[in-house]
């Protein structure tokens, strides 16, 4: 009798309900967009357009995975865009000398790592809230670049743009997509099978309890930024190598798209939850918006507003499902102590 209450009563969670996850709804939404495009603008499905979409998707996704890991720890990184701008300039300097992709990409990853690490240290060592720390470093990075470079670095050699124009799998598929695929699969496995990933979630869920469990919370947070940094580096490299000219503001503001992709993918901004697969879907949906609107004949001026609308819709849907689930909990539950009543009576 007493044990009965310890068994799960939520009988309806099995089978069908388990499929109805955020990822499932996103997938439906994504398919819906693709179907609409097939009907409304079949031209959309040209090799060229698809490859352009995929290239954008690849660097958005790579950086968004980094952002996702930071957000899981209940932090945020609004410096991501400016870090990528710095990375772009740094690798342009290296690339100008004719250095090959592996060299300047590694330099870019190192630059991303160091800058992101600095953010992590500000947050953990000086206890500055993530949004403030990264907002400050954003200004610093954005402000420093024009002092070092006047406007842009141009006339970059073919070795620099090789990734964007020549590196194609089977002659069509951009290498950036291959990067994204490898990184995504790698991180999916990492988030499932590594011990460290559990600590990321634990810290984001309940920082106090994580400390009491013996987790070095500061180390986990710094490492989240350290992991994100090289991903920003790779994304910055893909962005920079898209042309022969690299400007100082190339990726400024891109962090908002990253955060949008992560949030759309079902990761709570409060931290502690979220899956890589959600971010993949979120990033893919956002990648489609601008080109899709072009093909339908809407001005691309609308695309930001549409993206905003989609994110708002996703957040509202998530919030409604939480509200209905917790309907009873909003009322302060009576947590009386009848155990004490029973025991008192027995003693007496």
């Amino acid at each position: 009798m007493a044990q009965e209450s310890l068994k799960q009563t939520a009988g309806g969670t099995g089978g069908f309900k388990k499929i109805l996850t955020t990822e499932f709804y996103l997938l439906i939404f994504l398919v819906a967009i693709l179907v609409v495009m097939a009907i409304a603008a079949p031209d959309f499905y040209s090799v060229n357009t698809i490859m352009t979409v995929l290239n954008y998707f690849s660097y958005l996704l790579i950086a968004a995975i980094g952002m996702n890991i930071i957000i899981i720890t209940s932090n945020i990184d609004v410096a991501a865009g400016s870090i990528m701008s710095v990375v772009a300039i740094v690798i342009a300097f290296v690339g100008k000398t004719g250095a090959p992709l592996p060299v300047f990409m590694l330099v870019g990853m190192a630059a991303g790592l160091i800058l992101s690490w600095v953010n992590g240290l500000f947050i953990t060592k000086l206890k500055i809230p993530a949004i403030v720390a990264t907002l400050a470093t954003t200004q610093l990075f954005v402000g420093a670049l024009p002092l070092v470079v006047e406007g842009s670095i141009y006339d970059l050699p073919a070795s620099f743009t090789w990734l964007a124009f020549k590196a194609k799998l089977f002659g069509v598929l951009p290498a950036s997509v291959v990067f994204a695929a490898v990184i995504t699969v790698g991180f999916m496995l990492f988030m499932r099978y590594s011990r460290f990933s559990k600590k990321l979630y634990a810290v984001g869920n309940n920082i106090h309890a994580a400390t009491l469990t013996g987790i070095n919370v500061n180390k986990v947070m710094v490492l989240a930024f350290v992991i994100a940094g090289p991903l920003y580096g790779i994304a910055g490299t893909i962005i920079a190598t898209g042309g022969q000219r690299v400007t100082t503001t190339m990726a400024n503001g891109f962090e908002m798209t990253l955060i949008a992709a992560v949030v759309l993918g079902g990761t709570s901004i409060a931290g502690g939850s979220g899956k890589i697969i959600g971010t993949v879907l979120g990033a893919f949906i956002l990648s489609l918006i601008t080109p899709a609107m072009n093909y339908i004949g809407l001005s691309s001026d609308w695309s930001d507003a549409v993206m905003g609308g989609i994110i708002l819709l996703a957040v509202i849907v998530a919030s409604i499902s939480t509200l209905t689930k917790n309907k009873k909990v909003i009322i302060t539950p009576e947590t009386g102590q009848p155990g004490a009543i029973a025991a008192a009576a027995e003693v007496k």
């Binding site: 559990k198 979630y201 634990a202 984001g204 869920n205 309940n206 469990t213 709570s268 502690g272 939850s273």
Partner: peptide, 8 residues
Amino acid sequence: ETSLFEEM
């Protein structure tokens, strides 16, 4: 207060 990680 339980020190569980709610989303896990």
